[in-house]
């Protein structure tokens, strides 16, 4: 995504690639991210504004029809909105949310987080090197998402497909996250 004046975003994991026979590690493209906080009363108005039903069930992500925008349940009044940024900027989304007039907090965290795509048949076992949650399909199905721990850092893990996870972390932890996952990827049998 380009900035308003064509200034390119410099990804903290610029040019990083990692892979083994069973797993791929790829920095996710830059995205718009909004930390959205609101009480139950505001949810339908906010859902209207973003064109997506804010999930009320814990550990759940929803994706829009085009697949370019998603909302992840992080807590009972907390969501992470991720948009690929092809159709506007963070400011547009913030404005649209503000226009609802309902009680909420929307904070631009597009640059706070970065993400690593962990793909392949061994994706779950690579994450299991450092994530204490049960990542089996039964316990952590497609579109399950959760803030949790990976090694020594906090991450948000979102299963986007059977064999694809998105791992969101704060940018200064992305070096660690990538190195950890790369190390774990070596141990895939």
């Amino acid at each position: 995504m380009d900035s308003p004046v064509g200034m390119e975003r410099i990804h903290p994991l610029q040019n990083r690639r990692g892979a083994s026979a069973h797993v791929g590690l790829t920095p996710a493209p830059p995205a718009i991210r909004i930390a959205l906080r609101a009480g139950g009363d505001a949810l339908s108005a906010l859902s209207m504004a973003i064109g997506l039903d804010l999930p009320r069930a814990p550990k759940t992500a929803v994706v829009n029809g085009d697949g370019d925008r998603s909302v992840l349940w992080l807590g009972p009044d907390e969501w992470l909105l991720i948009d690929d940024g092809e159709n506007g900027e963070a400011a547009d989304l913030l404005a649209r949310l503000a226009e609802t007039g309902v009680l909420h907090s929307a904070v631009d965290v597009s640059h706070r987080n970065t993400a690593i795509m962990v793909t392949g048949e061994a994706a779950a076992s690579v994450l299991a090197a450092g994530c204490p949650q049960d990542l089996s399909l039964k316990a952590f199905p497609v579109n399950a998402c959760s803030r949790t721990v990976l090694g020594k850092i906090e991450v948000v893990i979102w299963r986007m497909a059977d064999d694809m996870f998105r791992v969101e972390c704060w940018r200064s932890f992305s070096d660690y996250a990538f190195a950890f996952l790369s190390e774990a990827a070596k141990d895939v049998r």
């Binding site: 930390a35 907090s105 640059h111 200064s172």
Partner: peptide, 10 residues
């Protein structure tokens, strides 16, 4: 009615 969001790294 207030929420807190870390923006240290934003």
């Amino acid at each position: 009615d207030v929420w807190l969001t870390s923006i240290t790294e934003q």
